[in-house]
Amino acid sequence: MEKKQPEKKAAPILVQMGIFAAILFVSALISSLFPKSFVVPTPLIGMIILYILLATHIVKLEQVEKFGDLMISLIAFMFVPSGVQLAGSLDLMKREGLQDIIVSVLATIIILVVIAYVGALVIKIHQKLTGRVDDDEETEKGAN
């Protein structure tokens, strides 16, 4: 897909953007194949494709890293328009804005606690089943 770069040297930024653009283009095409009732957003498909390309070494880390890190570092700023978007739903906000805020806050805590404990449970069951004792769990616990 890309011409060979010298080891570890970051690809030119325009090439990095080109890789992102190509993956997003394909992702958008794939996303449009899904029915309305089962939306698979373009960036989700892009994320999966990029991971597969990296994991199979078709795309090297140094070919996407610089642009990708830049994008991630700006992500909080990029959310400003989606926040300001509420200006278009102020009626809804006036009616139940406070409830929305409370439920969002509680939902955060629910997600954190439920997933943390389900994750812990899954790990414990897995360890029981395989009899595997997790080495970094043990060593790090010992160190504490």
């Binding site: 993956i23 997003l24 890190d69």
Partner: peptide, 12 residues
């Protein structure tokens, strides 16, 4: 730009 930014989560 959230599209490439979200996609970039594959990198970490």
């Amino acid at each position: 730009f959230l599209n490439p930014a979200t996609m970039a989560f594959a990198i970490p």
